[in-house]
Each structure stands twice: as structure tokens, then as C-alpha cells.
Design a binder for these strands. Structure first.
Lengths: 346, 346
DNA sequence: GCGCGGCATGATAGCGATAACATACATGTC
DNA sequence: GACATGTATGTTATCGCTATCATGCCGCGC
């Protein structure tokens, strides 16, 4: 503990509202009122109370308050990883939208596993959030049950779950990847490869892969060459290794689509290191439009997703539901935009 | 709310421990005991209770529990940005160390401003964390006062604050940057430039810059060329713009050191785009050893910092203090390691 | 002068869990 | 069989705050 502690509070005790009340010569209830914006307290009293608060270094105990008022003042958001700028943008969108609502964000990450997600959801629900934002639509049965009986609004994001729990703000990863394939096919590419992770842990990755396969079929192109490499989320390094493997096995591949910009970036850099020209020898495209995609050399063709907007809109829906402005539209699904960004690499 | 809600709980009410107790035919206290690992309850009773929990979809209300037990079961950590893989690594270190302690992490970010930090600290303290981890040693007076009277252990990280609040886990950013300068001077570089942000919002950035200036002076080299560009944290794009500005003003610059790997990466890519050879025409070095540093082309010379270890050790200290294994060593300062990683760019 | 509405403040009763103590019953010891 | 010991469970009293209702006071109109 800070050494100053004992000097400040002789009994080694954090002051309570009652301490403040006594010092200001009022009741605890009046202190409580003085500390909220809508409290009706005379100016003189409020001043005395705020002075006492300052002298004691008092900080409201919100956990006690929320037990009484049955409002905890926070919402939970669960993302796969904080080390991914797409999800960080979503988190930022949520935070921005929450600003000035008095709600705080409690953030957790799952490392892309449903088990961690389940544990995290339970840990969050124990603290009684007023709403919860999830990434993706795949959850364990137990997680679904807990969410359904929690009595709070739930928003699933980043995908279009076949069986939504409650509300949805997202887009079809399958369609987005298919759009990328069609766009590149129109540019003349015919021999497509796909680089992604090995397991289905990353459901959005699986959906993108499915969209790739579907689009290739629909266009009547030669079957796509699928490389699975590494446990999702696959890294920059793994992207480089994967593209090497792809070129060894199928040297005539014309364009490699990657599950994310990070792996695409790794692939591009590894090719440059080996003197393989991009896009002449092989074209490469990513997914997500991370900041590096626009500034690496060559710049990266990719699919831009409205990450920030997903967060903003998810938070907005949640706030509406919490405030009861729901109008029974809770099952409405909000589609967010995506678009192919054509740059130098493909 | 999920539509299934009404089907599950007719009164639209989340069940409490008492509901579970009644259903299992025991008292609330026995339910409480059955739900914690160390609770002493007969197997038969526990089974009945767990069945009731399942049927009702009951989830413990931790905010009520912590009011009673005076333990909230979480620690707070405040980082400048979640969109920075260095701090994300620190967060991961904290989470990993917290695993199996029963403590949860509540994460917040300040966008590098002391005002947001102050608001965030107050918001966190309201929820009564059992400990708090901060980034950096610069805080508003009010923030310091709140932390000092909160009665919980505090760990400041990533720097060596001149006036620590409590405990410290970090390193000297000044010394680390000076080490980079000395290392490169030994390789023969003499005309040094420095690229960083414009304001002092990023205290670690300012310290690195100071270390740069100091080392140049001590080595008796020509005065360093300082470019300030953009509000911290400076982006990839701004790194590229800054290096262009530097070369316009001081075309003979031999090596540019950047406040972080992101700006260094931007500088490298912009040079490649312009046909400026690295490191022959200009050498570039970064700071932080982000993943891209090792895999971009050319690979980036940088300073590796033990981000993950900072998080691990900060959490470990915190846990010790919380458990009271403090031994009065609370003022001990833990130094974490850093080292120059020489790669292709300088 | 009486009653009324409006405002500032106080008193009381929980919110949902757990700590601490109390109780009941089974087991073991001599 | 009496008593100590131990285990499983229940009872009661908070934890620190806020919702709700009660109170007292002021000024106003008729």
C-alpha cells in the first residue's frame, strides 16, 4: 500500500458515506443526493459535503450503490483478442458511444476459444452488467443458456449468426470474401489460393474460407488451393511460411487471398525477401484493412470492414434496449458495410 | 432482451440465491457454501443445489457477495491504448499471471492523456479494485491523492517515476534510447536524427527523446536533428511523413531513430516507395520490437522491451501485496530488461 | 389564520450475498 | 454411557449504499 496511507486515515480504513455525512453534519442520504447530478440539495449543503469529501479523500462505493439501485453502470464486451487492431477499433467504437451515458465498458478477451468465452461470460454476468456485446455467433450451450436467462440485452457482432440470441450488428464474412474473389476474377486472375488457420476456432476465418470456395465454384474457376497453417489467429510469420508452402506445392498460383491482413503482410514481406515480385509473380490480398495495409510497400489489396462502426452501432443498440426505447424491435439485424480496397498487391 | 427470457422466468426476474435455496430445500448459506470451492457441504446436498442452479440458470451475484465479504475479486489496469501491441502484451502478462488467483482484470485506456487517466482512475476506484496497475509515473494531483487514500496496492509500470506512489515495475526509457544511440555510434553512424511526437502527452516518448539528446552530447557527436510530427502516439503514416521532412531539411542524415516501431516502419516503407535505400542512403531504427519489426523487409533494428514481463511482474507484485506477503518491501523497484536488436535497417 | 404545495432533509428498510456464531447430529474414546 | 470432537447446516447481523416514504419548514392565496 502507499506509505502515505497511515498518515491519511489512522484506522487504516477507507472512509464511507457515513463518515462524510458526519463530517458535513448531515445524513448519509443527503450525501448520496449531493453526489449525483440530479440530486436536489441546497447549494450551501452541497458545498459543505463536497468539502468533506475532499478532506477525507472519499470515493463513492459503486458496488454498494448498485446493489441498492439495481444498476451496475457498466456493460460488458467480449472480443477474441486485444492484440488485433480490428477488434481494438470495435472496442473504441463502443467506448466512444458509451461516453456521457454514465456507462462504463468492461472488456474481456477469449483468445478465440469458446471455452474461455464461456468462462468470461460467466465472470461478467456475475458482476451483473446492464448489457453485453459479443463477437461472433458461436457459443457453448451453457453460455447461451446463461445469456438467455440473464435478463439483459445481448448484441452479437462481426458475423450474422444463424440463430441469434438477441440483437445482431455485423456482416457476412462469407459474402465479403466472395466479393473479393469476384473482384479479382474480374481483373483476370484465375488460379486462386487461400491461406488461413488450421482449426475452426476462428469462426469468421472459417466463414471467409467458405465464401472463397463458394465464389470460386460459382465462377467456374479451377479449384482453389487451400493452405491451412497455424492456429488462429495466424501471425505475420505464419503468413510468410504459408505462402512459401503454397508456391512450392502449386508454383503457378496467380493470387493468394489471406484470412487477414497480418498474414497477407507476412506473405508479401517474405516474397520480397525471396525476390518474388508482387503482383507480377504472385498477387496477394488480405482482409480487414489494418493500418499497415495502406502503408506497407507494396500497399495491400484488402477488404475494408467498418470495425469502428460495428462497435458504435452495437453500443447504440444496447443503450436503447437498456433505456427501454426498444419498441420491440429487438430482433432487428443491423448490417454493416464492407468494400474491397484495390491497392498495389493484387 | 432475449425473447426466451419470458419463457424461462415468468416474473421476468433474475433468480437469487434464495430461489435456489428454496428449490433445493436448504438455506441460502448452504447454497453459498456449495458454490465456492472451499465450501464444506455434503455431496448429496451439493448435487441437489447444483441441479437447482442449473434449472434456474442461476449466476452468482458477485457485487452483492463482495459487499459482504469486502473482496471485489478484481484488479484494475490502466494502459494508454489498447491499439498498441506493446501494451497489449503487458495486458496479456497481467491476465496470465492473474489466472487461477480468482482475480479478474478490469482494463481501461487513457488515450495518452492525464485527464482521461484521472477520470478512469476514479471510475475504477469506485468499483473498489483490490489493486491497480498504472502505465507511467505522471498523474494529476487529484489522481495521486485518490490512489494514496484508496488503501490498495498500486504498481506503476513502463517507467521509473521520480516520485513513485507505491511499487514500480519498469525501466529507464532514457537509458534504453541512449543505449541504442551508443550501439549505432559504434557501428560508425555520426549524423543522427530523431523522430517523435509533438507534445509531452507521451511521457515515455519524451524520455526517449531526452535519452537521445543526452547520448549524442556525451559521445561528442554533431547535434541530433529533432523532428516532431503529430500528436502521440504517432502513426505509421506520420512516421513516413516525418522522415521525408527530415531528409528535406537535413539531407545528409545518416540514421533516423524513431520513438516507436510503428513510426519507424512507416519511415522505412515511405523510403522504399521513394527508392531511398535502407540502410545505405539512410538507416532507420525503431523502439519496442513489435512483431512487424522482425518480419518487414528490410527487418527493423529496434530496442526490445520486456512488455509481457512487465505485466507479469506487476501482477505478481500486486498479488503479493493483496495476499499480504508484502514483508514491508513495498517500496522495492523492479527493473525490467531491454536490449538492442540489430537487424537490417540500421 | 388555515390549508396547501413545494422544497430540503431525515428515517427506515431493503438490495443479495457472506462472516460469524449457533445448533444438531454422528462418531469416537475411555 | 458420558463427554469431547467433528461435520453439516441454519440463523442472524451486517457490508455501504439508495428507494421510498415521512417530516418539517417556508411562503402563498383566500
Amino acid at each position: 500500500m502507499p506509505k502515505e496511507l497511515n498518515a491519511k486515515s489512522p484506522e487504516n480504513q477507507v472512509p464511507t458515506m457515513l463518515d462524510v455525512a458526519r463530517r458535513a453534519g448531515v445524513s448519509a442520504m443527503t450525501v448520496s443526493r449531493a453526489l449525483k447530478k440530479d440530486g436536489r440539495v441546497s447549494d450551501a449543503t452541497r458545498e459543505r459535503i463536497l468539502a468533506a469529501v475532499n478532506e477525507l479523500g472519499y470515493v463513492l462505493d459503486q458496488s454498494a450503490g448498485s446493489l441498492s439501485s439495481r444498476k451496475t453502470g457498466f456493460v460488458a464486451a467480449i472480443i477474441p483478442s486485444i492484440n488485433n487492431s480490428n477488434f481494438a477499433d470495435t472496442a473504441r467504437g463502443i467506448t466512444d458511444e458509451l461516453e456521457n451515458t454514465g456507462l462504463q465498458l468492461l472488456l474481456g478477451y477469449t483468445d478465440y476459444t469458446a471455452e474461455k468465452e464461456e468462462k468470461l461470460i460467466e465472470a461478467m454476468l456475475r458482476r451483473r452488467p446492464e448489457g453485453i456485446i459479443l463477437t461472433g455467433g458461436t457459443h457453448t450451450d451453457h453460455a447461451r443458456r446463461m445469456l438467455e436467462s440473464a435478463g439483459i440485452p445481448v448484441v452479437e457482432t462481426w458475423e450474422l449468426p444463424p440463430k441469434p440470441i438477441d440483437q445482431v450488428v455485423g456482416f457476412s464474412n462469407e459474402e465479403a470474401m466472395a466479393l473479393l474473389v469476384r473482384t479479382l476474377a474480374r481483373k483476370g486472375y484465375r488460379k486462386f489460393g487461400y491461406i488461413g488457420g488450421t482449426t475452426s476456432r476462428d469462426t469468421r476465418g472459417s466463414q471467409r474460407r467458405a465464401g472463397f470456395v463458394k465464389a470460386i465454384e460459382e465462377l467456374g474457376l479451377p479449384p482453389g488451393r487451400l493452405v491451412s497453417f497455424g492456429v488462429p489467429p495466424i501471425s505475420i510469420e505464419q503468413g510468410g511460411q504459408a505462402v512459401v508452402g503454397m508456391l512450392e506445392r502449386w508454383p503457378d498460383t496467380e493470387v493468394a487471398l489471406c484470412v487477414s491482413d497480418l498474414s497477407a503482410f507476412g506473405a508479401v514481406m517474405e516474397c520480397k525477401r525471396r525476390g518474388i515480385r508482387i503482383p507480377q509473380d504472385i498477387a496477394i490480398a488480405g482482409f480487414g484493412d489494418f493500418e499497415i495495409a495502406a502503408y506497407c510497400h507494396p500497399t495491400l489489396t484488402t477488404v475494408n470492414v467498418d470495425c469502428y462502426g460495428i462497435g458504435k452501432q452495437a453500443a447504440r443498440k444496447l443503450i436503447q434496449s437498456i433505456k427501454g426505447e426498444d419498441n420491440g424491435l429487438s430482433q432487428e439485424i443491423i448490417l454493416t458495410s464492407y468494400r474491397v480496397v484495390e491497392r498495389e498487391s493484387a
